[in-house]
Amino acid sequence: MTINVYVVDDSAVVRQTLQHLLQGDPEIRMAGSAPNPLLAGPAIKKNRPDVLLLDIEMPGMDGLTFLRQVMETDPIPTVICSTLTTDGSKAALEALAAGAVAVVAKPRLGLKQFLEESRRELVTALKTAARSRPRARSGAASAAPIQKAAARPVIAGLHALSMNKPIVIGSSTGGTQAIESVLTQLPGDSPGIAIVQHMPEKFTAMYAQRLDGLCAMNVREAKDGDRLERGVVLIAPGGRHMQLRKAGGQYFAVVADGPPVNRHKPSVDVLFRSAAECAGRDVLAIILTGMGDDGARGMKALHERGARTIAQDEESCIVFGMPKEAIAMGGVDDILPLQRVAGAISAFDARG
């Protein structure tokens, strides 16, 4: 099957270079290009491509505005390739939040050479996007200030069970949006949540900051030794693995370097396996949208220890890879649409 890619970039050099690069892969065809979204809009309506490859800075209309319009009307899998999407940039996170499947940064200088050297990364991103199923988005998340819940006083015996029942979540492609959808539905005093989302270094700190502004819970990038407590969400830092350990009846994050696991660092399997070892049946594990099989073996280990395990269903996934593998391994108790995951977390907490 040939993947038809439509390129929107105001640089003629970029368009020509991309056409040359993409011709080298038999699975990809450059179906057309335009220097700006105003010209691209009618073209992609007439001949809908499989994937959009989109710049951000362009005359007439910027790429983020165009991306949001596409995702609200007729979602097309989109890869962003822009000088604005350097590691950890606000533009990159806005693109992912708007529905982009992947972001590839390009430099302002040495552009042609960079694109040639990054051909493999770009082709992989396009093929991943082609296998995704983006969902229509009704608009940007509310930017209204969030009232954070005050920390609960620790009283002997009170909330002891629910305080010691952590939640672990793993996701990859499409996960930035899925996690936001889940967390923004939860009250500020929900059980502590540890999350591995496949992201590069420098992205996770800004991603956590963005979520903290949208959620009632307190969201931050995890640091070694952070306590996982009610009202707190810890995001594993890009380029580091995160594990859970238990000491004195409390759970703490262990953040450390190490080799990639399942080609990822952080890895969902690393988090899930540590949760199986230190929390066992007291943990709720959730695996969301993502490419590949990271987390499937860890979820199986959790299931065998008596933990409650949930996988996102195929219909609501951007990419039904990680949940599918976890289900196939027999490690999943329930398969739920994304909109029911927050309710499952609250029900888990209420059972104490």
Score class of each variant (00 low, 15 high):
Leu115Pro: 00
Glu116Gln: 10
Ser118Glu: 14
Ser118Lys: 15
Ser118Leu: 03
Arg119Pro: 09
Arg119Ser: 05
Glu121Cys: 01
Glu121Trp: 15
Glu121Ala: 05
Leu122Gln: 09
Leu122Gly: 00
Leu122Arg: 13
Val123Met: 12
Val123Glu: 07
Val123Tyr: 15
Val123Lys: 09
Ala125Val: 07
Lys127Ala: 08
Lys127Val: 13
Lys127Thr: 10
Lys127Met: 14
Thr128Asn: 01
Thr128Tyr: 04
Ala129Asn: 06
Ala129Ser: 10
Ala130Trp: 03
Ala130Gln: 02
Arg131Asn: 05
Arg131Glu: 11
Arg131Thr: 10
Ser132Lys: 05
Arg133Phe: 08
Arg135Ser: 04
Ala136Val: 11
Arg137Phe: 08
Arg137Met: 10
Ser138His: 12
Ser138Phe: 09
Ser138Cys: 07
Gly139Thr: 04
Gly139Gln: 03
Gly139Ala: 04
Gly139Leu: 01
Gly139Glu: 00
Gly139Cys: 04
Ala140Asn: 10
Ala140Ser: 13
Ala140Asp: 08
Ala140Tyr: 07
Ala141Ile: 06
Ala141Met: 07
Ala141Val: 08
Ala141Trp: 11
Ala143Asn: 04
Ala143Tyr: 05
Ala144Asp: 06
Ala144Lys: 13
Ala144Thr: 07
Pro145Val: 08
Ile146Trp: 15
Gln147Asp: 02
Gln147Trp: 15
Ala149Asn: 00
Arg152Thr: 00
Arg152Cys: 00
Pro153Gln: 15
Pro153Val: 11
Val154Arg: 14
Val154Thr: 10
Val154Leu: 14
Ile155Thr: 11
Ile155Phe: 13
Gly157Ala: 08
Gly157Lys: 00
Gly157His: 09
Gly157Asn: 07
Leu158Glu: 05
Leu158Ile: 14
Leu158Cys: 08
Ala160His: 12
Ser162Tyr: 14
Ser162Thr: 09
Met163His: 13
Met163Ala: 12
Asn164Ile: 00
Asn164Gln: 14
Asn164Trp: 09
Pro166Phe: 15
Ile167Gly: 06
Ile167His: 08
Val168Phe: 09
Val168Trp: 09
Ile169Trp: 09
Ile169Met: 11
Gly170Thr: 10
Ser171Ile: 02
Ser171Leu: 02
Ser171Tyr: 02
Ser172Cys: 10
Ser172Val: 11
Ser172Ile: 12
Thr173Phe: 00
Gly174Ile: 01
Gly174Tyr: 03
Gly174Arg: 01
Gly175His: 03
Gly175Phe: 05
Thr176Phe: 02
Thr176Lys: 00
Ala178Pro: 02
Glu180Ile: 02
Glu180Gly: 02
Glu180Gln: 03
Glu180Tyr: 02
Ser181Tyr: 05
